[in-house]
Nucleic acid binder design. Structure first.
Lengths: 185, 185, 185, 185
DNA sequence: TATGAATGAGCCTTCATTCAT
DNA sequence: CATGAATGAAGGCTCATTCAT
């Protein structure tokens, strides 16, 4: 049943494969959206379909894995006491601009996996303090909270997904200026 | 939408079929997103698949037709001299909130059809005067132009697409408040 | 997406295709059991996979169609007042021996479709009178009812499924003699 | 079934693993039928897939091993001179009712492995004497031989495979009564 | 011109089997 | 000798598109 022309690089490859899959997924999702054929990811990672399924039993799992990576970095920055809301936002905006797969993390409707919702909640959570600080410093409007900030990011992300590589930077700048102003001086 | 199914009502029905298809498409796109199976549209219109293809040779065509309808209404309002930017925007936002298929009209990347791009341009065009007027009246910031307004709308739309029916109105309000403020008092 | 090298023989083929599918299914089920790949059926019928799915949206549907054909014939015989239990049984046994797909009809566990259960019930139903008559005539034991007869048939069928073409007739005869005696003189 | 998972317990475990696999297989086959994924067996045994393949290079092998166990017990009973046919049958019927994996042992068509056929032959063999005795004692009909008895058992088994856990005991009783009577008073 | 069945490519998923460690 | 990850073939199903009538 198995003619096996590819090589079995053995269990040692496991960790490497997982990483390759997550990388490939980030790429593929960025280019084709989160609905991209999973087979593309497997191929891009140089890995059999089965291996993809072993590591990530469903689409949500691998999306989740991509997000985990992203949010970890953000959390790291956000938990540093001296970082400001705008620094954190700048970082996020930067990430979004670079990798649009980030999108779904912010507006996770459409996915069942509670862990994805959890990511969204974490995102909101890590912004609460920063927004609080920003509000006291007059850096955002008085009626703005973390939910609004996440909403702003959620609106920012998909617009880029639909923008050609060429105009991405321009649109990103313009859009974020708009949203940032919407959050208040 | 069409009660007399299954009969070949002959050439006479052509125009009626076209209209039924556009209506059905609006409905189906609103409910299932723009990726909905085309067969759903044909069925909803009470029309054969072949007829759908005769009238609209591809997905873009029918999306386009839906948009045409929408934008015509908007144009009608926008060309009335006494209408303000915010009235026009309110109308658009209302339409978007009701029918998320409107989305792609505003941020048309991903579609090849130049006619869809054209729609987007028309949309921008019809807002130019209004924005000009609003700027003079101090209703938007001095550095804001029609492109920014379209961008705001383009960001507004997809967020709703991802929102559950239940929270749609709430999210819409919050998001639009944010964006409107971003355009300047 | 569709390179379409096969011919589209048009809607006229619909009825013919359906029949071809049922025939092919009977054959394929007989040879490979009811778990046979549906693609085999499509191929055997000289029909695309899609057509199979149009006519029979799931495995149960086509199994059902095969059974319908079988049971209709039986019913026809059973409702003739002059036919005896043993004549009906002989006819069924003959069918089973010829086409083992008949099996699942008698012991339909494992399938969700209530219509398949319904078939089983019909089968029992049409035997009730005959069994009653046979009991009065002393042709079956006093404690035997239609359920027992169906049970006997249900045990008879799968044994043939597992028997080589070569010894099928022999095994069939021996098995049925055993079961018939079990139902009482 | 095996508590110390994940460790390579080395060659010493070989025998233990084999036993664990056979036990697991009996369980898994009973619950999911003989077509159950082999991976289930490995997991249930707390053993790597590779080990399963080392001990049993294919599905037949492990089925065979399960049967070996079963038939050994039966043989033990059958060779006791004082045991009667009905005692042996009762024992077998009991086993079948409990574990339907027993099925394939009796009607071994569909498997290529000659060793499985061999099992079937052993089964017949061990019944020859008992049937002989039973016939002399008038406990079975004069024209019944061991082949008929095996056939009866072969028909009995699969019917249970298709029966819900809930009604299994009932159906078993009814079916066996029928078959037993078929073998003659 | 309308109909709706036919088509098959392509995606998702499972699982037997191999093989580096 | 055990482990368990890797592999890819194969099956189920969907849906865009074509085409006989």
């Amino acid at each position: 049943m198995n003619t096996s022309r590819g090589v079995n690089r053995g269990p040692k490859a496991a960790a490497g494969n997982r990483a390759a899959l997550v990388d490939a997924a980030r790429q593929v999702f960025a280019e084709n959206g989160v609905d991209a054929p999973l087979s593309l990811i497997a191929r891009a990672a140089g890995v059999g379909q089965g291996s993809l399924y072993r590591h990530f039993p469903n689409r949500e799992s691998i999306i989740l894995a991509v997000f985990e990576d992203n949010i970890a970095e953000i959390e790291e920055l956000a938990t540093r006491p001296e970082s400001t809301l705008d620094e954190v936002l700048e970082f996020i905006v930067e990430q979004i601009t670079a990798s649009t797969a980030f999108v779904a993390m912010l507006s996770p409707t459409g996915f069942d996996d509670p862990r994805i919702l959890e990511i969204s909640r974490r995102m909101t959570g890590l912004l609460v303090d920063k927004v609080e600080g920003a509000r006291r410093a007059g850096a955002v409007a008085a009626d703005v909270d973390a939910t609004d900030v996440v909403l702003a990011l959620a609106m920012f992300a998909p617009i880029l997904l639909q923008t050609d590589e060429s105009s991405r930077r321009d649109v990103a700048a313009r859009a974020w200026r708009l949203l940032r102003r919407g959050l208040g001086a």
